[in-house]
Structure formats: structure tokens, C-alpha cells
Design a protein around this nucleic acid. Structure first.
Lengths: 199, 199
DNA sequence: TCGAACTCGTACATGACTGTTCGAGTTAAG
DNA sequence: CTTAACTCGAACAGTCATGTACGAGTTCGA
């Protein structure tokens, strides 16, 4: 997780962060996640206020708006990676995919919004590099389904991956617009993907 | 088209705009369309420069950033409405939908990008009100297909409409990413929608 | 050709955001 | 309990965008 030279600035010589500092970092990341994943153009001041923390304190932990955004994405990606561990991807690919969608779709949706709203704060390359591992897991699952004859082969794998994300995003919009309930959404998604992917 | 009390500010008493003024408005709208549909956060200064026009001149025609954005959307919507007239929507719904997609998909894509990038400049209500008529045309076509037994009825019509737009957007992203060519895109789209919509 | 319409650059007032500095107060940790 | 880590507000400098005002020049239109 993360890396040695993370986003945090000052550390104590021991290498440990003080407890209250860690707590504040968490509060900032929580607030940032909520704001950033809901709308673009969030300001550092807003995040600080939502976190119940002074703006200067925030800058003490995240030296720039960009670093904050990166930390946000990092945490979201880690969370997603961790969530994958909990999903059973064995057995028939179509059933496995349905399980993945049902259990992870709102995580995928949040990441997508986050991703959309930090564009301009971090470089596309950075974003792509971080997102790639997650994309590849889905890609592998789909490829397996194609090899097994469960999924269609007349369209590029990359297209199937992209349309999955696209429909997840669409489902989230439909919920926001009140045209779909949170309960219906995963079922609609699974049904749509089943049609879209089948041979 | 448009309406009586358009975005333009000064008019001659005759009600006619001078030829050079009209020309500049067009240049501004052209440049604005290009910029706005390619990325968010475009500034008025950028549009003016891209149009080869002074910033003050732009403000002379469009009193505010918001009005400029509205004019942009208005023109795009009018263009789309006009394009509908040229498409044959008679006959079997599935074939008609394929024709619509093939002939209009890049117009739909551009409007979608435009729409995404003016969020924050115009109210969601305004946007929705203008976009609704276009949405309704697709909705009607899909509804007809359902009544004819050509399209599935186990998912909401609104969802079918939304996923159409969503996949169009996805296809455009794939082209940008170099994973799909402009020639392949409409075919991939039609094939996907056929699977997604069929009973 | 004459006047009104139009354009242009420059300049100004205003506001929002970013990132930094300072000093004084608070809190965790050993 | 003592020190170093941390937090806070206030204030500052720098940048960038919006929208307005002015005055002088250019161009259309009748």
C-alpha cells in the first residue's frame, strides 16, 4: 500500500506520525473523497472546512492540491484492490462477472466519479498508471469468458471493458435522476451486461 | 431559429445585425464549440483568442460566460434537431435505430461532451429542458420497438435511452484512446445496441 | 460619403483560489 | 512534566478569470 515517500510532509524522526495528525489526515481524505466524488472544481478550502480542519493544517499534510488529489485516488484504488480479494471470481465467467458487478458496482462508480473530477489536478499518465491494474483484472475475467465460449468475440475486449464502466456510470446517473432505485440498479446492470456480452 | 430575445446585446434599430458582427458571432460560436466540446474549464479569453476576436468584442455579443454557453448549446441542439429530419425513422424499429446511430452518433457524442463541459455554467434545469425534446425522439423510437416486439421490455425505457448515450460516449472515448478507429466505432456501437436491446 | 455600428487594446475593479509565513496556543508522547 | 509535534487564524503575495469603461480606429450600409 502507498509507498515510502508518501504525500505527507513532516514526520517525526522516529518515522511515526502523531496520533492526532493521522486522525486529521483521515478526516481530510474522508471529506475530500465525499466532495471530489460528487462534483468537480472542489477547492482546498472546501475540503479543509468539510474536514473540520484549518486550511493550513491541510497544507501541512498535503503540500499541494495535486498531492491531495493523488492521495485520494491512491486510497480509492487501494480500497478497490482490497475489495477484489473478497470476491469469488472462480467458476463460469458469466456468473463470476455478475458477482463482481453486484458486489463492486458502487465502488466502481465512486472511482469513476472521482477520476472524472480530478482530471486537471493530476496528469492523465499518472491516472492511467494507477487505474490500469484494476482494469486488467476485469480484462482478464472477460478474456477468460471469451476463451470458454461464454462471451462474444466479435468485439474487442477493450470495448467490453469500457462499456462495463460506461454502463456502471450510467446506472449511477439514473439513480441520481430518480429513474432507478439503488436496489434495481445492480439487477438492471447485470441483465444489460449479460445481453451485451453473450455470444 | 433561436428566439426573439437571444443572447446578442446590441442590435441596430432595424433589428438587423451588421454583416461583420454576424460573422464574428459565428466565428466565436465555432471556436467555442471546438474548445468547449473538447475540455472543461474553458475561459472566455481562450474562446475569443481562438475565434480571432478581441475579448471585448465577445462580451459585446454575449454578455456573460453563461450566455455564451447557452448560445453554444442552443446552436448544437438546433443542429441536432435539423439532422433528425434527414434520417428515415420509418420501418422496423431496430433497423431505424441502426440508421439513426450510424448517421448521428458523432453529433450525439459532441453534444454529450458539450453538455458535460458546460455544467457549472448553465443551470441543470435549463440544460434538461433543452435536451428533453431530443431525448424524447429516441424514447419514442425505442417505445415503438417495444410495442412491435423488436426490443426488450424487461428494462425501463429510460434505461435503454441512457445506455445508448452512455455507449456513444464510451465509443468516443475509445477513439480518443486509439483503441477504436472512427470507422469501426459506429459498427461496434450498432452491434452492441442490437444485443442490448433485443428481446 | 456620412453616420452609426462595430472592433480593438488597454486598463480597472472585483473576487476566488493557491501556497507560504508567522506566532501563539494545544496536544500527544516518552 | 517537558519537549517536540501539531494545529490554528490571520495575513500576504501571486495568479487568473470575470465583467466593465473608455477612446480611438475601422467597416458596413444606405
Amino acid at each position: 500500500m502507498a509507498d515510502g515517500k508518501t504525500t505527507a510532509s513532516a514526520r517525526r524522526p522516529s518515522g511515526q506520525r502523531r496520533a492526532d495528525a493521522q486522525r486529521n489526515m483521515d478526516k481530510i481524505l474522508d471529506a475530500g473523497l465525499k466532495l471530489y466524488s460528487s462534483r468537480p472544481g472542489v477547492s482546498v478550502a472546501e475540503v479543509a472546512e468539510a474536514a473540520g480542519v484549518g486550511r493550513v493544517t491541510l497544507y501541512g499534510h498535503f503540500p499541494s492540491r495535486t498531492e491531495l488529489a493523488k492521495a485520494l485516488m491512491d486510497r480509492a484504488f487501494e480500497e478497490t484492490e482490497a475489495a477484489w480479494e473478497g470476491v469469488d471470481t472462480s467458476g463460469p465467467a458469466d456468473a463470476a462477472l455478475a458477482r463482481v458487478v453486484r458486489e463492486q458496482w458502487h465502488l466502481m462508480e465512486r472511482n469513476r466519479n472521482l477520476r472524472d473530477n480530478v482530471i486537471g489536478d493530476v496528469s492523465p499518465q499518472w491516472l492511467r498508471a494507477r487505474h490500469d491494474p484494476i482494469l486488467r483484472r476485469i480484462e482478464e475475467l472477460i478474456t477468460r469468458g471469451r476463451d470458454d465460449g461464454a462471451f462474444r468475440t466479435d468485439l474487442p475486449v477493450s470495448w467490453l471493458v469500457t462499456s462495463l464502466y460506461s454502463l456502471v456510470h450510467a446506472a449511477s446517473d439514473e439513480i441520481t435522476a430518480g429513474r432507478l432505485t439503488a436496489a434495481e440498479a445492480p439487477e438492471v446492470l447485470v441483465a444489460s451486461l449479460r445481453s451485451l456480452y453473450r455470444t
